[in-house]
């Protein structure tokens, strides 16, 4: 399908405007990460990079135990991402396909449990976590990360699955598939678009999650979002903004990579259309 030139031009104009609003501060952040500390703040602002330096990145690379930080992030993110893709889709299926009192209450509980700010509840949770020996462990962190992803993912999957006609699985069931089999063979493949979207969202959420690791890690587990703590301050009052922005850019890279890889899976309209009755 070829698009009329005029429409394409209008779209490009919008893209450029949106891109500018988004990228202009981001550009300043990225530029900062390549700038020497003394050149960071100038008035009027230097937009062109001068005296580029890799010092900020070098400082991060030299930071104690970078590999520990990487290892922690990869392990915890991968585990909670895997759990969330499968278990939340399964739960979404349960919520979408069965409507009775109990299930509806469970659904409401999952939604409403996100509505409680964590500032106070973290204290009893911490006490409980320590008593169970889960504080500062990979499994403890993974459970908390996964729990964090549950409400949104589950509700999204449920909404999505409720738009898939049940006749599809019923057909599979008539062909002799079990209920679980009908889910894995018929429903899961249809979830690709929402799965791609949620994976991107959840990946970024895990990567940037700050509060949970801040509270629940001390020495055994390290994650990238806390890497900035290991950058020594220049002095008591000055943030190492160069190194901080470098850390931010470094964390952005995997996120962008993830988006680029999964972006094409978001497109699923045609396939969905053919099954909607």
């Amino acid at each position: 399908m070829k698009m009329p030139k005029r429409k394409s031009a209008v779209l490009w104009i919008f893209t450029i405007i949106v891109g500018f609003i988004i990228m202009w501060p981001v550009y300043w952040i990225v530029k900062s990460s390549f700038t020497k500390q003394i050149d960071l703040f100038k008035s009027p602002i230097e937009y062109m990079p001068v005296n580029m330096t890799l010092d900020n990145y070098r400082q991060l690379m030299d930071a104690a135990g970078l590999t520990d930080y990487l290892k922690g992030t990869i392990l915890i993110t991968a585990a909670s991402l895997f759990l969330s893709v499968f278990l939340c889709a399964l739960a979404g299926y349960g919520f979408a396909r069965c409507q009775n009192k109990g299930i509806n209450i469970a659904f409401a509980f999952i939604m409403f449990s996100t509505m409680i700010p964590g500032t106070v509840t973290v204290i009893p949770l911490m006490t409980m976590w320590r008593r169970m020996g889960l504080s500062d462990t990979f499994s403890g962190l993974t459970i908390l990360y996964f729990s964090l992803l549950i409400p949104f993912s589950t509700v999204m999957y449920a909404g999505f699955i409720s738009q898939i006609p049940p006749s599809l699985e019923e057909a599979a069931r008539i062909d002799g598939a079990t209920m679980f089999g009908a889910f894995t063979k018929v429903i899961l493949p249809l979830l690709k678009p929402i799965m791609a979207t949620l994976s991107i969202i959840n990946f970024i959420t895990c990567l940037n999650e700050f509060f949970i690791p801040l509270m629940f890690t001390t020495k055994n587990v390290k994650v990238m979002s806390l890497l900035m703590s290991s950058i020594p301050k220049l002095n008591q009052y000055q943030m190492p903004w160069g190194a901080i922005s470098a850390a931010g850019c470094l964390m952005l890279l995997p996120a962008i990579l993830f988006i680029v890889i999964f972006e094409k899976n978001i497109m699923g309209g045609l396939m969905m259309g053919s099954i909607k009755q």
Partner: peptide, 27 residues
């Protein structure tokens, strides 16, 4: 079907209850 639905929902529900129920009651 209802039983199956509960089995689908259970893992997620248990994790969520585990991490929120006691803190919320305490709070």
């Amino acid at each position: 079907k209802t039983i199956f639905a509960w089995m689908c929902v259970l893992p997620v529900l248990v994790i969520r209850l585990w991490t929120t129920a006691y803190p919320v009651v305490a709070m």
